[in-house]
């Protein structure tokens, strides 16, 4: 007790006290409130919500609060919808490994069933975008004229709305103060759709009135079509534009040519 008393004037004491207070309040709230939330989510299976709640308390409550009402360390999850959970947890961004300017993509820590349960729990807190069904996350395959047209339209939508952060080829780009738009290669259609619908991190929300589900599908199809195109020009150098090309010219082209010049200079006349 003496040790604790000695630290009572520590600068962090007030913060710890506040946090403790918040946790207690949140904890108390979580004892009283969830039942109402459960009741207001008639579509979600009651046991999935309950399982999700357990998972939530064990893995997410530290930052998001026991009732998902949000704390200083994490935003409120009321009304973010199942799509946000499915995106954040399904790409391994959540649970966050450590405080950072932005949650990086990471190893996925839960299986599909657990993710669905978490999503069901969060969806039960308030209405929000739900996990998209297969109708709009199915990739339109190039081949027919109609499909090609849809893909090309997706390309136009992508260039106007997405390329300024994610780069022309979806290779990613920098944002302010260490934040960034991640690369889009290899991201599943469902997760791309969810990202557009929920606007994770610094990304704006492209809801159904900004971009219709069909338009989102076209964007996804364009990205996948571009991914599946053979790299006709050879190595892409990361599709990062002239910077990587210039670096390559200075390091490799000049290096090889100077090597040849030295060799030729050494050759007897």
């Amino acid at each position: 007790m003496n040790a604790l008393a000695a630290r009572r004037r520590h600068p962090a004491a007030i913060a710890v006290l506040l946090l403790l207070g918040l946790l207690v309040t949140g904890g108390a709230y979580s004892f009283l409130a969830p039942k109402d939330a459960n009741a207001s989510a008639p579509t979600a299976a009651a046991d999935a919500v309950a399982e999700g709640k357990d998972l939530f308390i064990a893995n997410c409550a530290t930052c998001h609060g026991v009732g998902a009402q949000g704390t200083k360390s994490g935003p409120s999850l009321v009304g973010v919808g199942a799509a946000a959970v499915d995106f954040q947890v399904g790409t391994g961004r959540m649970p966050l490994a450590g405080p950072n300017v932005q949650a990086p993509q990471n190893k996925v820590k839960f299986d599909d069933e657990q993710i669905a349960a978490l999503a069901a729990f969060v969806a039960s807190l308030g209405p929000g975008p739900s996990v998209p069904d297969a109708e709009h996350t199915t990739v339109i395959k190039p081949g027919t004229e109609e499909n090609n047209k849809a893909i090309a339209e997706g390309g136009e939508i992508f260039r106007v709305n997405c390329a300024m952060c994610h780069n022309f080829a979806g290779a990613g780009g920098a944002l302010t103060r260490g934040k960034y738009a991640p690369a889009l290669e290899g991201v599943t259609p469902k997760h791309i759709y969810e990202a557009m619908a929920t606007g994770p991190q610094s990304m704006p929300v492209f809801n159904d009135s900004n971009l219709t589900p069909e338009a989102k599908q076209k964007v996804i199809s364009y990205l996948k079509a571009q991914e599946n195109e053979t790299n006709v020009g050879g190595l892409t150098l990361g599709n990062l534009g002239p910077v990587s090309e210039g670096l390559f010219a200075w390091v490799f082209a000049l290096g090889i040519l100077i090597g040849c010049a030295v060799w030729l200079g050494k050759k007897a006349a």
């Binding site: 136009e156 260039r159 006709v232």
Partner: peptide
């Protein structure tokens, strides 16, 4: 590859791509 113009798409004054740089 150098300057994959097909990936950039046609010019239009409204879009822009991240990583727009001139040649070195």
């Amino acid at each position: 590859t150098i300057n994959p113009i097909w990936a950039y798409g046609p010019y239009d004054p409204s879009p822009i791509t991240a990583g727009s740089q001139p040649d070195w």
